[in-house]
């Protein structure tokens, strides 16, 4: 079932729950992994994924179809992530470096993290980027999204996104040079 049919079914009271269930099944993994790469911890990612879909449930009735359904969902998820990280920094009065350290420790110690050393190093390098730049990098590099779609999600121009991604790559390369062992 395509997105247009899903929305039509959602707008019909009799098939609303069924359509929403299909929508969650279709997009849950994309949304979850998008969030997980940002917040690192599984429990936090689980909470934010649920919150994203609950907000989608509330707002889908007013979805006009001006953007694609998946970019609309990504936008909600992105806002959830950025708000979560901003709250985390405010709550503990932690400077950015300490949050990076905390997330970096989670990568090393968490049960649900594994992979080659080089991949773990890349994740640590990503944590040194500002949150918004990390978002852009994740969407371009891991999800292989078009700049136009990322622009729709973040509300940033394509030119600015290209510059941001280029800068992120340079910072990661520098991190690898500095942490060569």
């Amino acid at each position: 079932m395509n997105d247009h049919e899903l929305i039509e079914k959602f707008n019909h009271p009799d098939s609303r729950n069924y359509a929403f269930n299909l929508l969650v099944r279709k997009y849950q993994q994309k949304v979850y992994w998008h969030i997980r790469k940002m917040v690192i911890d599984h429990d936090d990612a689980d909470d934010l994924t649920q919150e994203t879909f609950i907000k989608a449930w509330r707002g889908l009735e007013n979805f006009k179809g001006e953007s694609q359904l998946y970019t609309w969902l990504y936008r909600i998820a992105t806002n959830e992530c950025l708000n979560f990280l901003a709250k985390k920094k405010r709550r503990f009065f932690l400077p950015i470096n300490d949050i990076t350290e905390e997330l970096s420790n989670k990568i090393e110690s968490a049960d649900l993290v594994s992979g080659e050393q080089i991949q773990l190093k890349l994740q640590k390098a990503l944590l040194t980027l500002p949150d918004k730049q990390r978002l852009v990098f994740n969407m371009k590099y891991f999800d292989d999204m078009k700049y136009e779609d990322i622009a729709d999600i973040t509300g940033t121009s394509v030119g600015a996104l290209k510059a941001s991604y280029h800068l992120a790559v340079k910072k990661i390369e520098l991190y690898f040079e500095e942490h060569d062992n």
């Binding site: 729950n17 997980r36 690192i40 080089i118 390369e173």
Partner: peptide
């Protein structure tokens, strides 16, 4: 070091059956 040569693998994992249960948990909340 070339980022493009690095395989795009995720280092993160989820508990077994997580994506099977998630839609039901969300539906329960809605």
């Amino acid at each position: 070091f070339d980022l493009d040569k690095l395989p795009k693998e995720t280092v993160f994992q989820v508990p077994d059956g997580y994506f099977e249960d998630l839609p039901m948990r969300i539906q329960a909340r809605t």
